[in-house]
Amino acid sequence: MSPTDFDVEYVAELARIRLTPDEIETFRSQLGQVLEHVARLNEVDVSQVEPMAHSFPVYNVFREDEPRASLDRELALSNAPRQAQGLFIVTKVVE
């Protein structure tokens, strides 16, 4: 756990966020400090500890497989920045 190899530009790319050069600089130093702080977790002995993802055990919840209404198509499309003929318009994926 060392913040020195933290490449903010690369991680932002993984997260699909385009940063400005200013943001890259600022975030590198700010998040560097945060990573330095969280590195203190290395002091904790966790060798005998189970990880937990949830406060309580989570089980599948089943219901009868009966058809029921879902969100109306028009309503589902109503917030789309671009839509036509009942479909979302996406940016071209293939060349």
């Binding site: 756990m1 933290f6 903010v8 991680v11 932002a12 993984l14 997260a15 966020i17 940063l19 943001e23 975030f27 700010q30 998040l31 945060v34 990573l35 969280v38 977790l41 290395n42 904790v44 966790v46 500890v49 189970e50 990880p51 937990m52 993802a53």
Partner: peptide
Amino acid sequence: VKRRIILGTYVLSSGYYDAYYLRAQKVRTL
């Protein structure tokens, strides 16, 4: 929001998951 998404992406990313995220989940148990 950008800072936190980047931080979250980093602690989950390949090679760092165990050191950060998994360890944090264990401390959460404690």
